[in-house]
Simulated scan of single mutants.
Amino acid sequence: MAAAPPGPGPGDVERAGALMAAARRITVLTGAGISTDSGIPDFRGPQGVWTKDPAAAAMSTIGAYISDPEVRRRAWRSRLAHPGWDARPNAGHAALVELERAGRLHGLVTQNIDGLHQRAGSDPALVLEIHGTMLEAECLSCGLRTPMPEVLARVEAGEEDPPCPECGGIQKSATISFGQALREDVLDASVAAARSCDLLLAVGTSLTVHPAAGLCGEAADHGARLVIMNAEPTPYDPLADAVVRDPIGEALPLLVAAVTGGPAG
């Protein structure tokens, strides 16, 4: 498998488009970078949530969340103000819908919790939310799931740390925090999608969080091509057949157009 140059080079978009056009079963792995054009900041980029406020990471650490009521209160305020509630799908999300309509999308694994792929029109059956969803709350004791707007209405009404209505336990968003295990069924389906594709396209992810990042290696080990589209270098760039640094909202529609034979969207 040919290795890509260490950084962006001329022709990478064209090379990536040619690889995409030749593929028949494309699995896509998306990260926070695909949603930044929708107004949702990433975590580790120059303007990322954790870059600008390292203390915010505690809200995504299960041990701190369970043990510290103030972390939970801050987390609920943060959920209430999350930009995802007003966000709309962008050109990158729309391009992946076009890839699905072309019959080439084998699976869509997302590290994002914002639900924008489904709102753009992606088939929910193809979307594997490996890090969960912000659209529901989950009780850490009894497992009850509640639509997030219902719980946020309680926060707006004055409950700073609303307990589970069923058992009184601690609630959090139905997302995977650091220190929490991934849902086994979702992880298994994600690994299967990586192993059975002939090209894996990683979009807008730093590829530093495992096991999601390891899907690149799973795909390559099973003979698939690897295309990485991310503004910053990733640990998997040396394994890739093409590395694209161009803005996702511009480059991803071009790659999909190479597959469909026309402009994406």
Score class of each variant (00 low, 15 high):
Pro163Asn: 10
Glu159Trp: 00
Leu152Glu: 05
Ala157Trp: 03
Ser177His: 11
Pro149Ile: 06
Cys164Ser: 11
Lys172Val: 14
Thr175Gln: 11
Ser173Asp: 14
Thr175Asn: 11
Val155Phe: 03
Ala174Lys: 00
Ala153Cys: 03
Val155Ile: 10
Val155Met: 04
Gly158Cys: 09
Pro163Gly: 13
Thr175Glu: 14
Cys167Met: 09
Met148Trp: 00
Glu150Ile: 00
Ala157Arg: 05
Pro165Asn: 08
Leu140Cys: 10
Asp161Asn: 14
Gly143Ser: 08
Cys164Tyr: 02
Gly168Tyr: 03
Arg145Pro: 15
Cys164Phe: 01
Pro165Tyr: 02
Val151Lys: 04
Val151Asp: 06
Cys142Ile: 07
Thr146Gly: 06
Cys142Lys: 03
Glu156Gln: 14
Glu159Arg: 00
Pro147Ser: 08
Ala157Val: 08
Val155Pro: 10
Leu152Pro: 12
Ala153Glu: 11
Lys172Ala: 14
Val155Lys: 03
Gly158Glu: 04
Pro147Ala: 07
Cys167Arg: 04
Arg145His: 09
Glu156Cys: 07
Val151Ala: 08
Ser177Asp: 13
Ile170Met: 09
Val155Cys: 11
Gln171His: 08
Glu159Thr: 05
Glu159Val: 03
Glu150Trp: 00
Cys164Met: 08
Thr146Trp: 01
Cys167Tyr: 04
Pro165Met: 05
Arg145Val: 11
Pro163Phe: 04
Thr146His: 01
Leu152Trp: 02
Pro162Ala: 12
Pro163Gln: 06
Glu150Gly: 02
Ser141Lys: 10
Gly158Asp: 07
Leu144Tyr: 01
Glu160Asp: 14
Gly143Tyr: 00
Ala157Met: 09
Gly169Glu: 08
Arg154Gln: 13
Ala153His: 03
Ile176Leu: 14
Met148Leu: 12
Ile170Trp: 01
Ser173Leu: 12
Gln171Trp: 00
Leu144Cys: 08
Leu140Pro: 14
Pro162Phe: 02
Leu140Lys: 06
